[in-house]
Amino acid sequence: MGLESKMGGIITTQLDKVVNWARKNSLWPMPFGVACCAIEMMATLCSRYDMSRFGAEVIRFSPRQSDLLLVSGRISIKMMPVLTRIYEQMPEPKWVISMGACCSSGGVFDTYTLIQGIDQFLPVDVYIPGCPPRPEALLDALMFIQKKISTERIQDRIHGN
């Protein structure tokens, strides 16, 4: 790992602030859009709602270059290993947004093949309700993640806690 593994027990409050400020204003999302919610996600990224106002416009389709996993859509049993692998490939620190009813709880698809909420196998930071959530809701979730980042300490991320 990077900076945080060199920190030991040093008190680093001011450094935390600087690092968090940098992290929260340049989130690099990894979009995992597998169903209708992804359309709203695309709308959020486009000019009308414009996620770049919050510093998160650089969509990376490679998990190795991103730190925010945006899961939007239904995750089936067959898709679960793929998503797990993608999450594992993302470098620390990383955050996860679960967008939409399907992703957070299975939604209306209470059937045999759908995982009833990705929190069964991924640590989710923010859930967005709605079917689909409006772009404003996604922006709100992003700001929530930013708020969460600004309260973190660098050491917290050493083992990813």
């Binding site: 049993i77 209470d110 045999y112 093949t113 759908l114 995982i115 009833q116």
Partner: peptide, 14 residues
């Protein structure tokens, strides 16, 4: 076969 399955959707190795 029940609509909600026989637990395949929740009993995977976590």
């Amino acid at each position: 076969y029940p609509l909600k399955g026989l637990g395949e959707r929740s009993q995977f190795p976590k």
